[in-house]
Design a protein around this nucleic acid. Sequence first.
DNA 1: CTATAATTTTAGAATGATTCTAAATTCATA
DNA 2: TATGAATTTAGAATCATTCTAAAATTATAG
Lengths: 154, 154
Amino acid sequence: MNFEVYHNLVEALHKAGYRLTPQRLAICRYLASGREHPTPAAVYARVREQVPTISLATVYNTLALLRQLGLITEMGADASGVRYETDTHPHANLICLQCGRVVDAPLPDLAHVQAVLAAQNAFELRSLRLDAYGLCPDCRRTSMPLATETMSYA
Amino acid sequence: MNFEVYHNLVEALHKAGYRLTPQRLAICRYLASGREHPTPAAVYARVREQVPTISLATVYNTLALLRQLGLITEMGADASGVRYETDTHPHANLICLQCGRVVDAPLPDLAHVQAVLAAQNAFELRSLRLDAYGLCPDCRRTSMPLATETMSYA
DNA sequence: CTATAATTTTAGAATGATTCTAAATTCATA
DNA sequence: TATGAATTTAGAATCATTCTAAAATTATAG
Ligand SMILES: [Mn+2]
Ligand SMILES: [Mn+2]
Ligand SMILES: [Zn+2]
Ligand SMILES: [Zn+2]
């Protein structure tokens, strides 16, 4: 677990006046435990190992709360639902069309891209999302024909 | 309506051996009619004006078919469901956090970005999606506080 | 022009993620 | 310890999407 990330989450909740319940702390611990891009169902499954009585509703509530506070961001939904980002810094996501894995990738000039976009359009930009679809190393090896069904984004 | 786009869609369907039914043609006509990023429900609503007996299932089926053929692409789902792209060329989408409007924006160096990503990672990239969130000109004027509820992506 | 079979459409049922609800629990505070 | 606000919980409700099986359409062969 990344203690710094964990501490950020907990402190932000506390500063915003929310109670640090065992359920919320367990969810934060899980979110700070890796570079995953979990669905609510995945969070529920993993956190339940630590807090067996937690409900799915609380997972949804807490994720929504953390999002309101800007501590996590929501990705678009794939076949198994929404996914959450724990890294709020601008970066690209490499998404495997075969297995659904999401890997973070740094991309130095994202701020530059946003600046160009903002300059050329009347939009007032707040954030950027860059998703790249393809085959992860593992799935590249077991190179199946890549069913056009599998994942819908192209 | 953009006849060139329409013709592309129809011809691709025909070449792939699919029947050019009134329902499919009406959907293609609608898709070629503007730069929208419609949801299946929106397609259904508009096409129904021309083909009142069409079913929602047919809309879903046809959109899935056009996607399989690579003629349209699917965007992530927002509050009202998936949206479809009729422009398959690489471009950025400017998405209004207030009203949900989606506007296409050219971005010259997208190919370059993809090349950099591919070079730095073991992923075999197929496509790129660049979504920028902010306030459209209209919503900027009527500058409400931008409810954190409204749209979830940040 | 029929008959037959494949394709397509359709309405409605089923599914599954997400949200809502109302009651029970926990917690801060007096 | 008593009170009230915040939180959690299980289950119901919602809503987009998918599935199903029957009806309609269309291509093709005789
Ligand atoms: Mn990420
Ligand atoms: Mn677009
Ligand atoms: Zn993979
Ligand atoms: Zn707007």
